[in-house]
Write a protein that binds this DNA or RNA. Sequence first.
DNA 1: GATCCTTCACATCC
DNA 2: CGGATGTGAAGGAT
Length: 661
Amino acid sequence: MERRSNCTPVAENGVLDVKPLRSLAPMFPAPLGFDMVTRSNVPPLVCISPFGSSLSGLDPSLFTPNKVPSSMNEGAAHVATKSGANSFWTGGASILLVDDDEEEENPPSKGKSRTSGKRDKKLQAGSSGSDAKRKRLIKSSIKPLPLSLPMPDDPRESVDMILMNFDSLRRRLLQVDEAKDESNHHYLKAGSIMSARNVKTNVGKRIGSIPGVEVGDIFYFRFEMNLIGLHSLSMAGIDYLTTSFGDKDEPIAICVVSSGGYENEEDDIDVLIYSGQGGSGKNDKKPDNQKLERGNLALDRSFHRKNQIRVVRSAKDINCPTGKIYIYDGLYMIESSWTEKNKAGFNMFKYKLLREPGQPDGIAIWKMTQKWKENPSSRGKVILPDISSGAENIPVCLVNDVDDERGPNHFVYITSVKYPHPIDMMKPLQGCMCLSVCLPGDMNCSCANHNGGDLPYNSMGLLVCRKPLIYECCSSCQCTFNCRNRVTLKGIRLHFEVFRTSDRGWGLRSWDPIRAGTFICEYTGEVIDRSKLEDEIEEDEYIFQATYLGEKAMGFNCRPELLEEAELSTETEVFRSFPITLSAKNSGNIARFINHSCSPNVFWQPVLYDHGDEEYPHIMFFAMKHIPPMTELTYDYGPGTGSIHNKKCLCAAPICRGYFG
DNA sequence: GATCCTTCACATCC
DNA sequence: CGGATGTGAAGGAT
C-alpha cells in the first residue's frame, strides 16, 4: 500500500496548554521524544468528527494537559482560538437555504468582516446583469452543503477528500473559463466556495503535525494548505498563533512556507535558513529594515520557547514553468537567529531551522529523484535500466532495494493492446474538422460534442472529470498532433520505476511528482474472450476487467453541490461497465505492476482514439490526487466476490476492506 | 464588529 | 524569460 501509510501522524487533537512547554522540554530530548511518537502505529487518539463543528463527540478528558503525549511538542498543542473547534462539513442548521442576510446567523465565526462590506457592492453589481454576477464570486450566495454526504472517519481520508474536492472544482471552473476564453481566478473561486461551505478540516491553529497530513505531501496552491489546516494564511509565509505564557500573550510560529521569495538558503536538506518577512520593497513600498513584529516576532519567540514548526518547501513544477509545487517537509526547530544586511543594504532577520530527526524523508526524496533524472546511472540497486527495452518514450528501470529477487517472471513488453482483430477491421472513429487544434468552447468540434460538449482535458493535459468514455482525436481528425484532445495516445510522460515491495511483490512508482488528473499509463495486454476462459481468469493474476471503479474514484469529479450555478454542472454519470477483459500475464506494460489498495491514488478511465468500438475501449490510468515522487501507485481492484479466490489485502489503509478480488 | 493593513499568490502581459 | 502589473483572500491589528 502507500509508502507512508504506516507513519500515521499521532494524536493531534488533544488541546494542550502551552505553558508546560518550557518546563517539559529539557526532560524529553527531541530525538527520543520524537521517535516515540512518530514511529508508533498508534492511531490518533481522537478522530475528527465528520459531522458538525461541535466537539460533542469527543471525550473532554482528551483535552486536558495530563493526557498529552510524553513529549509536549508532538502533542500538537491545539490552542483554542477564536474560531473554535475543528469544523468539518459543517452544514449544520444551515441546510435550510439561507438568504444572504440570514447567513450571518450561522457563523463559521470568521472572515466575515471585510468581505461583507464588499459583498454588498457585488450584490448590487450582480443583480444588474447575469454576466457580472457570474464573474464575481458572491460568498453569501453559497448554500451550505447538506449533511447527508458520505464522510470518512479517518483523518487521512478526510484530507484526501477535501483536496480532491478542491481540485475537481478548480479544474471545472478553469474548464468553463477556458471555453469562454476568460481568465478568472479558478483557484481563488474554488477556495472561496470550499471555505464558505466549510468544506475543510483541521480548523483551528495548532503546533506540530496535522492529522491526515504526511511528510512529503505535495500541494499546487496555497489554498490547498489552508483548507486542510497546514498553513492558514493565503499569502503570508509565517503562520503563528497567539498564546499566553503566564500572564502575557506572545505569538509563536507554527508553520513557515519557503517559496523562493526571499534570499533563503536551501541547499542542506535538514537545514533551512529562513528570512523574516517585510522590508523587501514589494507591494508598493520602499525597501526598509525588517521590524520585529508579526511573523518575525513569532519566530523570535519560538526560538526561545523551542516549539516545533512545520516547514513547507517549494520546487518548480517542470510541467508548468510558471507553477510551483509545495512540499510539506515535516517539523523543524529554530536553532539560532540573527540579523544581517540584504542586497539592498537593509537589516533582515534570519532564522536557522533544523529538521527534527526520525521523520520520513520529505525534500530529500526530491533531491534524490532529481539526481536520478539527470543521471539515471546514479540510481543504485538497478536490475534493468529499461524494462521496456526502448519501447516507451522514457526508460522504466527495474530496481530492488529490499531483497535478492532478480525480477518478475518473463513477459513481453508491449505498448499497445493486442486485439483479436486488426485495428483497421474494427469500427472506425469519426474525426473532427478542426483546423490546427481543437479549441474549448467550439460548438462545431465533433470531438468535443462526443465528449458531452467540453474537451475532456485542460490546456495542461489534465483530465478535468472522469467520464464513462472519452473520445480523443484520432487519425481521421483534421487537427494536429499538438491538439489538447490528444493525451493518452502519446504514451507515458513520467519517469517510472518498477520496484520490489516488502510484501506485495513488484510495484510501480514515479520519480516525478504527479498532479491530480495526470495521465499515468495504459493497461496493455491481450484482449481475451471472457466467456471461454473462466478457469483461466481465476488463475491469472494479471487480469483487468472493466467492471469495478471504486468509491474513492467517484470523488475525482466535481460535486454538483459545490457549483453554485446549475449551468456549470457536469453530467453526473461517472461509471459504465465494459465487457473488455485484458490479460497482461504473457505480454503487458508497466500497468501490470500496479498493486491494489483500498485507498488508491489512481483510477482507470476508458478512452477511444484509434478505433470506434465502444465495447473495447483502451483502459487508461489517471492520478486521482496529487502523488509525491516515489509513492507507490495503486488502484482499487474491487472487493472481490467473496469466493476463496479472494486475496488478503495488505494495503494497510485505515479503511482497508481486508480482501480484494 | 467594522475597517485597515500586510502578506514568500497567482496569472498575464510585455 | 523575468519583471511589472492587476486582482485578490485571510487574518492580525486597530
